[in-house]
Design a protein around this nucleic acid. Structure first.
Length: 300
DNA sequence: CAAAATTCCTGACTGC
DNA sequence: TGCAGTCAGGAATTTT
C-alpha cells in the first residue's frame, strides 16, 4: 500500500515525465476509479486539451496542476499503480481503469485491482483570497502544503505533511499534547499528520524507541524530539530508497520498477524475526484491526 | 476461508 | 448532561 515515500517517488518521476505534456484524450473503463464527478465524460472534459504544469503531493495524494488552474487528484488506495508507457501498443495490464494519452506521445495508465483508489479533477475555491490561513486547523499554515490545500478544497482536512511542512519540536509537542491518542493511531490519523500508514508508523515508532500504545500527551520533551526526528528521518530515508515493495504487494514506480526500502525494515512484517538492534523476537499485535509490529525490548 | 489495508461512516465510550 | 474526540468495527475489493 503506497504511503508517503512511495507517493513521493511517483511525484518525482511524474515531475520529470509528464510536466509540459498536453492531454490528448482520456479513457475511463472503470467508473469506480473516477469519483466525485457526475459522469466520466465530465471528468474527461476537464482534462482533455489541458497542459500539465506541475506535480505536487499532499500526504498520500498526488496533485497534477493543469493550465486551467484545476488539479487532477490521484489517490492510489491500497493497490493503485500509475504507469507511464511509451506506446499504446504495450499490453495493458489487467485492471487498467483510466488511460491518459498525451499529444507528444506516450500515455499514463492507472491500474488498480482493489479499486480503493480514486481520481478526480478539483477546481480551486471560486476566489477565497488569501488571509484564510486563520481558518486552517492549527499546525497547517506552514510550508508549501498550505498553498496546495487551498488549491484543492477537498483535501483541506489533511494534517501537516511531515516532509513538506517542517516544524519545531516545540510545535510538534503542542500538537501531540492536544490529542490524547495512542501514538500509532495518531500517526495514522490523516487529519493529524498526512501520509503515514500502517507500515511506516511501525518503522517510525521503532526508530523513536516508543511503543505503539503510548499516549501522545504523556511524552517527555526528549521523547517528543525523538519521535519527530524518527518521523522525518524514516520517511526521508525511505524516499531515498524509492519506497517499499513488499513480497505480496504491488507497489511499483512510474516505470514499473520496485522500491528498495523493504530491505531496511526494522519491524514491519518481521514477526518472530530477531530485532536488528537487540536480537529479541519482533512481536506482532493488533491495533484497530491492523497488524502492528514492534520490539518489546527496544520500544518503551 | 482468512488476511492484507485504504478511506469513510457509525456507534460506543471517555474525560472534562 | 452534553460535547468533542478517540477508536473499534464494518463496507467496498481482489489476490494469495
Amino acid at each position: 500500500m503506497p504511503e508517503l515515500p512511495e507517493v513521493e517517488t511517483l511525484r518525482q518521476d511524474l515531475a520529470k515525465e509528464v510536466v509540459g505534456k498536453i492531454v490528448k484524450s482520456v479513457s475511463v473503463t472503470n467508473g469506480r476509479s473516477v469519483r466525485r464527478h457526475p459522469s466520466a465524460k465530465h471528468f474527461r472534459g476537464l482534462l482533455e486539451g489541458r497542459t500539465i504544469k506541475s506535480v505536487g503531493r499532499l500526504g498520500k495524494y498526488l496533485l497534477l496542476t493543469l493550465d486551467s488552474k484545476d488539479t487532477l487528484v490521484i489517490h492510489l488506495g491500497m493497490s493503485g499503480q500509475l504507469l507511464r508507457v511509451k506506446s499504446a501498443k504495450e499490453p495493458k495490464p489487467k485492471h487498467t481503469h483510466v488511460v491518459i494519452v498525451f499529444t507528444q506521445g506516450g500515455e499514463l495508465r492507472y491500474v488498480d485491482p482493489r479499486t480503493f483508489g480514486e481520481m478526480f479533477v478539483s477546481s480551486p475555491l471560486s476566489d477565497a483570497p488569501a488571509a484564510n490561513g486563520a481558518s486552517l486547523p492549527v499546525g497547517m499554515a506552514t510550508g508549501d502544503g498550505a498553498a496546495l490545500r487551498r488549491q484543492v478544497p477537498e483535501l483541506a482536512h489533511l494534517g501537516f505533511d511531515p516532509i513538506e511542512d517542517m516544524m519545531s519540536w516545540d510545535r510538534f509537542g503542542v500538537l501531540l499534547r492536544r490529542h490524547r491518542a495512542g501514538l500509532k493511531s495518531l500517526l495514522m490519523d490523516q487529519e493529524f499528520v498526512s501520509g503515514i500508514g500502517n507500515l511506516y508508523s511501525d518503522e517510525i515508532l521503532f526508530s523513536a524507541g516508543l511503543r505503539y500504545d503510548r499516549t501522545s500527551d504523556g511524552l517527555s520533551a526528549t521523547e517528543v524530539r525523538r519521535l519527530y526526528r524518527a518521523m522525518v528521518e524514516t520517511l526521508t530515508e525511505a524516499i531515498k530508497h524509492r519506497g517499499s515493495t513488499l513480497v505480496d504487494e504491488q507497489y511499483r514506480d512510474l516505470f514499473g520498477e520496485a522500491g528498495d526500502y523493504q530491505g531496511s525494515h526494522q519491524v514491519y512484517d518481521r514477526e518472530n524475526a530477531p530485532c536488528r538492534r537487540c536480537r529479541n523476537p519482533i512481536v506482532r499485535a493488533k491495533v484497530g484491526g491492523r497488524s502492528t509490529f514492534y520490539c518489546e525490548h527496544c520500544q518503551v
